[in-house]
Nucleic acid binder design. Structure first.
Lengths: 198, 198
DNA sequence: GTCTATACTTAGATAGAC
DNA sequence: GTCTATCTAAGTATAGAC
């Protein structure tokens, strides 16, 4: 939340994100957030109704960032006609600003640990990770097949594999089991190697 | 814990596993466990010192099951000499009893959400998931290369990819984002397709 | 071994002065 | 908007009767 880091509200959001992602949502107390910001517990409630409201505001903010960084489907479909499949796959990546990139992984991690108890966390993950599969990858692959650019493949299954891969990467960022970025690049390439150009 | 389901201790462990894996460790109270078992809260402390002690006993039990189901390295290495790489890969799977198979995934899921706060949970995952990479997959691949059975490959990186894949499967079992078993089989096959027989 | 009753702690949230 | 003080609820854990 660099955009509003100067306001108290922005500082609360920033501190909460840091604490939620290291200690977990449940284990983070409002007192801990207040202490990190340098204010009193009671003051937080001038800005947010509850601890969950802070989390949901983070979801809101990063969902917006996600939307902004999202590649446009119509542009991708145009690229399919002129570029190699390989080139198009590279364009499928989200172009987050550097600061957002790290934080959005953290938010996905926090949300992923709440999927059993919190419908809004489920919704956040679904809308911002899984739905892209339906809406971006599948049409792109289908168009590639239509144009005879690649061998036939189950585009739905492929999308599921790819997205699950991203999901896991995000879920274990900032943990001892975080896989190294260079290895993720290799395994992502591997998944794309499922698709054989014609 | 079917083995001891008849004792109160066993029933506590069984109920705790169920609750931890649906509601999460933090959100599960001792009262909820007691209620599920049909005893009073205080009675639990006759069997376990703390809530964490229950979890750690689960770790202990399923680590033992994991050890039992683990393929033997020397046998695998013998297989490498006589069987096709494909056949050997199939033997790399753990042969859990059906009831254990489902529960062990749940235990990994619980542990995976505690990796930021609990060293014992980290240790459980490391010992029972990641170390196998070092100790099983890498030697097997290295031997295959030595015998000229497969094209050269970075066995360490391959092991990391494969194990991370299993880890994620376990971490999201029992959640709305659980990938379907048949799709996991496909994506696992994909990973093994990295290895090219000679 | 199980129960009731309770101690002790910490959490989220609120009220009201400044 | 921030502070101090406090409420209420819930949690883990213990003591002691049966």
């Amino acid at each position: 939340m660099a955009r509003k880091a100067e306001t108290t509200k922005g500082r609360i959001l920033k501190a909460a994100l840091a604490l939620f992602s290291t200690d977990g949502f449940d284990a983070t107390s409002m007192r801990a957030i207040a202490k990190a910001v340098g204010i009193n517990v009671g003051s937080i409630y001038n800005h947010f109704d509850s601890k969950e409201a802070i989390l949901y505001r983070l979801y809101e903010y990063y969902a917006e960032q996600h939307r902004k960084a999202r590649p446009q489907l119509d542009e991708l479909l145009k690229l399919v006609e002129t570029q190699s499949p390989q080139k198009v796959f590279e364009t499928l990546e989200y172009g987050y600003p550097p600061e957002v990139s790290e934080n959005i992984s953290r938010v996905f991690m926090i949300a992923s640990r709440r999927v059993n108890t919190d419908p809004i966390s489920i919704q956040f993950i679904r809308e911002n990770l899984f739905d892209d599969g339906e809406e971006l990858i599948i049409p792109v692959l289908d168009k590639m097949m239509e144009l005879g650019r690649i061998e036939p493949i189950d585009s739905r299954l492929f999308a599921e594999i790819l997205i699950y891969h991203s999901f896991c990467a995000a879920s274990y960022s900032n943990t001892p089991f975080r896989i190294q970025p260079e290895n993720w690049r290799v395994s992502r390439k591997l998944i794309f190697s499922l698709i054989r150009p014609r």
